[in-house]
Amino acid sequence: MFDIKYTYAVARLRALENHLFSAAVLEQLMACQDEAGCLSLLQEKGWGDPNEKQDADQMLARETEKIWETIESMHVDMSVFDVLRYPDEYQNLKAAIKEICREGHHPGIYIEGTSLSGEELEKILREKEYYRLPEHMQAAAKEAYEKLLHTQDGQLCDIILDKACLAAIREAGKKSGEKLIENYAEDTVAIANIKIAVRSQKTGKSADFMKRAMAPCKNISVDALAHAAAGGFNSICDYLSTAGYGECAERLKESPSAFERWCDDRIIQTIKPQKYEVASVGPLFAYVLARENEIKTVRIILSGKASKLPDEKIRERIREMYV
């Protein structure tokens, strides 16, 4: 598909893709002695702010900001990126509800760059003006706020908002009209459901609890997964194998970190064909995911170096790169 309105943006991204980290750059990072060495290498590669010395968190936060600054400067329709932005929006909503219900003041709990700031969210919740929230948030915000206020059950509040977030992601994927985004949204919801099932099975939660936490999706049946999880870890793996997630089951059996890596690598494999798209929203979406994956991988290496993990332990967690 050749959508003329993305010609400028995609060509610009092709130039930017030259600066994405390849496996070779990750090897250079791995070869650094310690976290400080990695940070100075990253600064040489243009990471963080060139004018000030930053610690790892500041540098990675700045890189995340740069992703959206770049995309916004291309003047494309930002609604196609809702799928990627909802988790931050809901995270802030969660933080705002807890901040109000527990009457505390904790600076720095909100993620920057969301459509509604933390202060605005607090004001909306205090004044019960839910209509000022995006439509997909209104009912969940009201329910989560009231539940937390009356029961003080933080987990219940989280479940309500996480489920609403997954439903919103799926809906935004469908609305985007782009196959790549729709598949990404479906996969995100499916993987979130699998994580809920595994975690709930380990903590001995009931099938009803799981069903309450999981969001419907195309690839996985919530009922079947919840019942499988109630039957034990092997039942989850058996169900996943029959649902077309056989590799996922294998990685789950291997280790939690192998499973996490598989989740991210699956996304990268899905977006790789976008490298050959000429003018559509797909390459933009893929670029954002590739940058996020790159930042996540650098974070893994930095924290591994900071905690002096053996190299082979860090390598196990390194994600596949887009380029």
Partner: peptide
């Protein structure tokens, strides 16, 4: 448009 995108970077 494509050329402008590349020259921007």
């Amino acid at each position: 448009q494509a050329a402008s995108g590349v020259v921007t970077e």
